[in-house]
């Protein structure tokens, strides 16, 4: 028996696998048993109705996809009245995710949404296709610090801050979020990209720029998780390009306590469940009694081959 549970501050998850925000809804009950998940992460909600961006909203690229959905939402009243009760039909802890364009509204949103029946508040300050001056606070350490500090003061519930891989110095932003009082960091959102249709010479998606996700970005985000984990004391949730068990292991070795999965669900709708089962088998086979023991267990020394090469005579 492998102990698959992980603790993220005061929250215990029965396993480290959860969906990324925007890649999950109770619609997935069409194909999978939602109660198997470590946690449920709701789609990001804003105060008012937002239609989202014009289609096409996503395109395939080598290594994954780019998307610009534009955070469509029916607003917080609908979220409270319909979405939260709908999620509550299922048993895993519920992570609510919020977005806003101003620091004042972020504070007010946090106060309002944290009062609803959610277990964790995720602060999405990193949607790559929102205006960097309005909403994409995660590009700047001072904005991240300010917004996190204000949100922290509004609630006793755990606050997870979702960072951006588009920041110049994500480690500085991670430290700013910790200083502001975040309980955990989600590393990271998507990488801003552009795909051009070579038949039409026009952008492939309606919003022109889109966030790159999928297996192609995984090494970049694993590196960021490693760097952030070295720099902060709060738990880190790894997010980017997980499509198999070994990807989860890599994120945890780099320092992640848990992971979020997005793209895989599009390719393989029951992929998260397969990974939960496979991770348990992997731990059993490798002799890990607790999956949590993987966190930060990377051996920070050169690869074995380096020693062999160094020992070999040259020429």
């Amino acid at each position: 028996m492998v102990d698959m549970s992980v603790r993220i501050g005061s929250v215990t998850l029965k396993n480290p696998i959860m969906p990324g925000s925007g890649c999950f809804s109770t619609d997935l009950a069409q194909v999978m048993d939602i109660n198997r998940l470590g946690a449920m992460v709701a789609k990001t909600v804003s105060r008012e109705f937002r239609p989202g961006n014009p289609p096409p909203r996503a395109a395939e690229v080598e290594g994954g996809m780019i998307n610009s959905i534009g955070l469509p939402t029916k607003g917080i009243d609908y979220f409270f009245k319909h979405q939260v009760p709908d999620y509550r039909r299922f048993t895993p802890p519920l992570v609510g995710s919020i977005s806003a364009t101003t620091i004042e509204d972020f504070e007010a949103m946090a106060r309002d949404v944290a009062k609803s029946d959610i277990d964790v508040l995720e602060v999405n300050i990193s949607c790559p296709t929102r205006d960097p001056k309005g909403g994409n606070f995660a590009l700047h350490e001072e904005h991240t610090y300010e917004v996190t500090k204000l949100i922290r003061a509004t609630t006793d519930k755990p606050v997870w801050v979702k960072l951006s891989p588009n920041a110049g110095d994500i480690v500085a932003v991670a430290k700013a979020a910790e200083r502001g009082g975040a309980n955990a960091l989600v590393v990271a959102n998507t990488i801003l990209g552009l795909k051009i249709n070579t038949d039409t010479f026009r952008p492939a998606i309606g919003n022109k720029f889109g966030g790159l996700s999928g297996p192609g970005i995984k090494p970049i985000i694993v590196r960021m998780v490693y760097q952030c984990a070295k720099a902060v004391r709060i738990p880190i949730i790894g997010c980017g390009g997980i499509v198999k068990v070994e990807d989860v292991v890599e994120y945890m070795l780099a320092g992640a306590t848990a992971v979020m999965i997005g793209y895989l669900t599009f390719r393989n709708p029951t992929g998260m469940i397969a990974i939960i089962d496979g991770l348990e088998q992997w731990c059993a086979k490798r002799g890990f009694a607790r999956v949590a023991d993987l966190t930060g267990a990377m051996i920070d020394e050169p690869p074995m081959e380096t020693f062999a090469a160094a020992a070999a005579p040259i020429g």
């Binding site: 969906p19 925007g22 890649c23 999950f24 809804s25 619609d27 997935l28 069409q30 194909v31 789609k43 989202g52 289609p55 096409p56 909203r57 996503a58 395109a59 996809m65 998307n67 959905i69 469509p72 669900t265 599009f266 709708p269």
Partner: peptide, 16 residues
């Protein structure tokens, strides 16, 4: 018809 990603509802890619 519309370009889809998940085909199941959550991703909101295929709107009209």
């Amino acid at each position: 018809e519309q370009v889809m990603a998940c085909g199941l509802g959550p991703c909101y890619v295929c709107v009209r």
